[in-house]
């Protein structure tokens, strides 16, 4: 059993990413979409929280949302995988349910 967590809020604006990390069980996946993609960047005051969470959770970020916001993949925390919408669909299939941290 595993959950695909989607986070669509900037971690600098809302607590969705914090809540997701607090309430996600080991082995789950987190996909950052929409303004959530800002949480994937390295060198921020949220990066350590994400890096720490990556010990238990797999992190992904939606490429089209990154590109729209002008975020270069080089600026991402090491180990976060970039997926497109087809990859998003695959993640929902690989996990047995989805939880949206709106």
């Amino acid at each position: 059993m595993s959950i695909l967590h989607t986070v669509n809020k900037s971690p600098f604006d809302r607590n969705s990413l914090d809540a997701c990390i607090r309430l996600a069980v080991k082995g789950g996946s987190v996909l950052l979409i929409e303004d959530g993609v800002y949480g994937a960047m390295k060198g921020t005051n949220k990066s350590d929280m994400v890096t720490h969470a990556m010990k238990d959770l797999s992190f992904y970020v939606l490429g089209p949302d990154l590109k729209a916001r002008g975020i270069d993949e080089e600026k991402l925390i090491d180990g976060i995988k970039v997926v497109d919408y087809s990859g998003f669909v695959t993640l929902t299939v690989e996990n047995d349910k989805a939880q949206a941290w709106l």
């Binding site: 059993m1 595993s2 607090r22 309430l23 996600a24 069980v25 349910k97 939880q99 949206a100 709106l102």
Partner: peptide, 18 residues
């Protein structure tokens, strides 16, 4: 606790978010 709730989410079939 957070941990207990996380387990409850894990053992649900469908999660409704609003």
């Amino acid at each position: 606790s957070s941990q207990e709730l996380a387990e409850l989410f894990e053992h649900s079939d469908v999660l409704f978010n609003f």
